[in-house]
Each structure stands twice: as C-alpha cells, then as structure tokens.
C-alpha cells in the first residue's frame, strides 16, 4: 500500500461531509445547477469533486464499480483505506465512477425494480469541465427549463423513459458537481434539433 492512499480524507469529517452532501443534494434536486464540492483528494485522475462525493456517500455497505482509467491499483488502495467499499462489476454496483466513454454501455448498470426503484446505480461521470451551455432540461427541480452540457443526449432520454426506474447521474470536474436524476426530461440543443429537422 502506498502512502498516497493514507491521505486525502476530509479534515473535519462530520462538517465537511455535511457541506459536501448539501452540494450533492442541491445539485440533484435542481438539475442544471452547478455547485462547489471539495475536501477529498484521491489519486489521479479522480477529481476533488468525485473524491468528496465518494467520501460523503460511500462506505463498506455500498459496492462500487471503477471503470477505465479510474480503475488503478492506487485508486483501489485509496478506496480500501478511506472508504472500505467493495469493488464490483457494473451488474451489482450501487455507485460507479469513470468517464462517460468508460462507463458505456450504461445499460449494464442496475435500474431498480418496479417495487424498489431505489435499488439502482448512481453514476459519477468525470468530465473535462462543467458548463450550463448545452441540452435543455425540464422536470422536477426545474422551474421552467434549465440547460446543462451533457456528454450525450439519447442515452439520457432512454434512461428517463424508464422512469420510475433508471440510473441517476452526477457530473464532476475539478471542484464542481452537477446532478441529473432519472426524472429529468432532456431535449437536444437548438442546433441539434434543427439538424434533425433537416
């Protein structure tokens, strides 16, 4: 085990986790808004936002799936020491971490059951940057419409079509976080719609 795995936890766990949770709550309850979340430091390429979210929500009771470049021995060691979450495959994960490309196909993740739609995976999608310039969102948490740059459109629309089943998303970059619950209706940007009409 490397020394790197011993550092990067919250400095004041109860207070830092409380602030991080409020950011995560506001992000998921108001899709399209971007919030600051910080305090956790995991080995690269995990962002501070993703590390803080993992420290806030994951523990030995939450099977975690690491995908692509986020599945390294250093990151596994860090999670084993700081969080204790079992590392599993997509078919039994409560949380998953990776870039959008690495997480494909998202249909491999749990979507819950009609009796228990909560038994589904939450995907933490690492992004280059977050921006409110992009797809149009509507639904719970949004007054009229909101916009958020998404890595794709169709998979999110198909996920929403499963409602109340489906997976939920967090997008992380640097110290920023945005949320996209399965309840959000998504339509492409103006530009994309015009192209389709032609």
């Amino acid at each position: 085990m490397q020394e790197q795995s011993l550092i990067g936890a919250f400095e004041a766990p109860p207070q830092d986790a409380a602030r991080a949770f409020r950011a995560a709550l506001e992000a998921l309850a108001r899709p399209g808004t971007i919030h600051e979340i910080k305090g956790g430091q995991a080995p690269a390429p995990v962002s501070e936002a993703a590390a803080s979210l993992l420290l806030t929500l994951c523990d030995p009771e939450t099977p975690l799936c690491l995908m692509g470049r986020h599945d390294t021995p250093e990151i596994r060691d860090w999670i084993a020491f700081q969080i204790g979450a079992p590392i599993v495959g997509p078919e039994s994960a409560m949380f998953a971490l990776g870039t959008w490309t690495a997480l494909q196909p998202i249909t491999n993740f749990l979507i819950g059951t009609p009796e228990y739609p909560d038994r589904s995976t939450t995907l933490i999608v690492e992004m280059e940057a977050l921006s409110q310039d992009g797809a149009t969102l509507a639904g719970p948490g949004i007054k009229e419409t909101a916009t958020l740059a998404l890595p794709d459109i169709e998979p999110f629309q198909m996920n929403h079509a499963l409602f109340p089943l489906g997976v939920d998303f967090y997008f992380t970059a640097g110290t920023q976080i945005a949320g996209l619950p399965r309840s959000t209706r998504i339509s492409g940007t103006q530009v994309l719609e015009a192209t389709e009409a032609n």
Binding site: A24, P117, D118
Partner: peptide, 13 residues
C-alpha cells in the same frame, strides 16, 4: 451516509 443516500433516491424518484 445511509440516510443521505436514501434522501438522494427520494429526490430522484
């Protein structure tokens, strides 16, 4: 953490 996870699922559904 357990309660927070439940709250987030509640928000999503």
């Amino acid at each position: 953490r357990m309660i927070r996870r439940a709250i987030l699922k509640g928000i999503a559904v």
